[in-house]
Each structure stands twice: as structure tokens, then as C-alpha cells.
Design a protein around this nucleic acid. Sequence first.
DNA 1: TACCGAGTATGGTCAGACCATACTCCAGGG
DNA 2: CCCTGGAGTATGGTCTGACCATACTCGGTA
Lengths: 248, 248
Amino acid sequence: MAADGTRRTRAFEEVLLQVEHRIAGDGLKVGDRLPGERQLAEQLGVSRASVREAIRVLETLGVVSSQVGRGPDAGAVLTSRPDSALTDLLRLSLSLSSLSLREVIDTRLMIERWSAEHAAHTANANRAADVDGNAGTDGDTRHDALAAAAAAMEAMDAARDPEEFVRHDIAFHVAIAEASGNRLVAAVMRALRGAMRKYAIEAVERLGDTGVLREDHRRIHRAVLAGDAATAAEAVTVHLAHAYPELF
Amino acid sequence: MAADGTRRTRAFEEVLLQVEHRIAGDGLKVGDRLPGERQLAEQLGVSRASVREAIRVLETLGVVSSQVGRGPDAGAVLTSRPDSALTDLLRLSLSLSSLSLREVIDTRLMIERWSAEHAAHTANANRAADVDGNAGTDGDTRHDALAAAAAAMEAMDAARDPEEFVRHDIAFHVAIAEASGNRLVAAVMRALRGAMRKYAIEAVERLGDTGVLREDHRRIHRAVLAGDAATAAEAVTVHLAHAYPELF
DNA sequence: TACCGAGTATGGTCAGACCATACTCCAGGG
DNA sequence: CCCTGGAGTATGGTCTGACCATACTCGGTA
């Protein structure tokens, strides 16, 4: 029986290990190319099919991107797109109902309150910096994000159906997360909203009128712009309570 | 030329769509089996290799698990293990350094403060319920998690090297996150800590003495047990400042 | 110089084969 | 009757070899 426990590693798993070592060891960076499938297969002594399965995994994790054809950009190129992977992960986990809506909304609350607070703080810091005349790229990021949030608010006012409304609603909330300046938090937010898109549309349909939600958005946006972290966080909490009254 | 934009969908992507539709539409649940690779290939009109690539993706996303052999549990079974997928995702994203340490630690701060606060609140609610004699499964989860945290603290006292210390440190912090009762937050925490394991070991080595960190853990644990959310959150912040002084 | 076609490296896909595994089932012995 | 062992079989795991579509590279030609 060989109380081994560890199932014999499959060929593609070995490929994954080797490739990850190569990334960490050789200091490969985004934009660098991996060897071709045939070459990699020969180097590692496995079939091309196994190499392909490994590459598919890496593609799923958002670290490589494959292009056909020939030239400098052909083949498997290292990238860093964790967003879609995160989104897929959460969406599938939700549809397998391994998570409750309550847990997801609580997580949103955590992220959005934090984001709004930090975006507001950054607003203050930036106002101070502006006086000195040096804004910096962080300020640019935040400024762009808040502009995007404002645009999303207008788009929501003009939205003709729940699907369109939710699309801009997602844009708004992601923009607030981006305004915090933390890309990891923003990525999680984007994934979360993308994964629960369907639920959000249903929630809006149940609600009927979106006037309350739109007014909430304005309050959040105003508070962040004003650098009032406490008010921004409170506005976020109120907003989610309006969107999902059954949980509060 | 055909300003199409959308690269022709690959065969395995079509398989993914079909399988996801089947999961959502047929109401498949965790534990249910997918058709065999050969059967799926025939149904969808693609080769077995393409089906395998799709299954590999699903496996990466933690929604299926494959077993060889025969019987009720053989084949591709629906599961829900988002943890390892999340961990891999973050680890690779970090090693491609698309994220700064600052962003990661800030995210940890957000999650751990929130977890500690909620674990403390749950502690209060449970104390009230205990008086009535009905604890419930939520209380069990929390109780088990806090016991695990206590065990991890003792193990850290006995740890002989940074690697061992960090292993139990991760267990402690994950346990606190689990004590919040939110599995999504706990999963993100687990992934985050797993992904930055190497960095944590280096940080401990730089620090030398772990006495301060161990004392921090005791303060966090005490505060959560006592149901003192504010103190618990503050203790978490102090703890991370001790672990990563260069960021504060 | 500008254009156009052959050459070629790359991923995408398929068909078919064989192996290892682990359950199922049944015959035979206790 | 129960138990045990072996044959049967469905499943994933792996490999080989082939062909296609794509998109760049390079050389020849107008």
C-alpha cells in the first residue's frame, strides 16, 4: 500500500515546478519569453501535451500569455494579469455555493470601507503636496480613479436597464478601490464585483428604483474628495445596507 | 486583417464554457462527477487533449479534482478548494513583482484588523448565547479556530528556526482569520500568508529575536477572547509594525 | 526604395495508442 | 454462508506524430 499519501506528481506538475524555478532563479520578468513548447518538452523530457497543460495552468493563473505566429512576441510571454484569474476563481466558487452571500458582502464591506478611508487619506496628503507643487504619480493614479468614478456616476444616471447600471456601478466601486492606491486590494475588489455581477443585477431588479444607490455614490465620492475618511466609510456601509437590505 | 479583436476562441475555452454552463444550469454541486474525458470530448466534438486542458484549468481554479481508477469517486469530481489556487496566484504575482511589499502588508493589515474585530464580536455574541445554552456551529468554528491559535502560539515558543516559527505564525494568523467566521476572508488570508512565506522567513531572520512578536500574538489572542475588538485591532497593527518596521 | 511571395517557427488541434490505477464482479474455497 | 483472490474494465496519465493557421523574416523583383 505504501502509505505514501502524496500521489505521484504528474508530468505537467513537474513542468510547472521547473518553470517557476526558472522564473524565480533566472530572474525572468514580465515581457520575457518562455522557451517554445517543443523545446521545453525536450528539455524536461516530457511530451508536448504535458507542457501544454502546464502552460494552460500558468495562463489560468495570469502569469503567461500565449501568442501564435512568429517573431519577438510569439510564444509564451510572461505577464501579470491576476484579475481575470481571481474573477474566475470567485465566480466559480460562488456558483458552487461554497460561500454565502453574507460572507461575500461582508468582505466587500471590509474592502470598500478600507478603500474609501485610504482614498480619502491620500486625498488629504495630495492636497498638501499640491501646495508644494509636486503631485507625483500616486496622485495621478488617484486623480484618474476619482475622475473615472465621477464618469461612472453620470453613466449610472443615464443607464436604461439593470445590466447597464450594474456595469457602471462596478466601475464606480472599482475606481474607489483604485483610488486607495493599493493594486492588490483593487484587484480583489475587481474580482469580487466581477464574480457577483449576476447577483448585483438581480439585486437591482428587486430594488426597482436606483435613486437611493445613486445618491449613496455621490455621498461616498464627496467624502473621499473632501478627505473625510470616517464619513466615506460610513457612507459605504449605508450604501451596502441599501443594496442588500436583507442582510442588515 | 478583419478588425475582429477577439482571437478565435480555442477549443478548450469552448469546453470551459460548456462545463460552466452545465454546472450553473444543471445545478451540479460539490461531489458530483463530470463526464469522463473521452465522453466529454465526443459530446463537445473536440479532442481529448482539449478536454484535458480545460479540466486542468478547472483544477487550477480549484473547482474539480481528478482521480484515476474506477468507481464512484473516479474521474473529475466537483470540489471547492479555492485556497491553493489563490495561493498560487498570489505567489506567482509576487515573484513577478507586480506588487510592492507595502501593498501586500497594507492588505494584510486590512484583513487582520477586520478579522480580529469580527472574531472579538463573535466572541461576545457567543458568550451571550452560551448563557442560553445554545452555542451553534458558528461558535464551534470560532472555538476551534481560537484553540488552534493557542496551539500555534505554543508551537512558536518551541520553534527552533525561522522556517518553523513562520509555519506556526501563519497558522496563528490564519486561525484568527477563521475565527472571524468568514471563509472568504480566511481563504484570502491563507493565500496571502502562503504566498509571502519566503518573505516572512527573511523578515524573521532579520529580526533575530521573536520575543516581541510572540508577545504580540498573546495580546491579540487575549483581546479576541475577551471580546475587545478595538484592542484586538490595535494589537494587530502594532504587531505588523514590529514585523515590518521598515514600512512604518 | 517599395512591394510581394516563399520560408519557417510558433501555438492549436487532432487521432490513436499504451500504461497505471482502482474499483467491480464473479468463481472457487473455506 | 462468507471470504478471498483474480479477471475484467473504466478512468486518468502520457506519449508520438501528424497537420493546420498564424504571423513574422527574408530575399527577390519591379
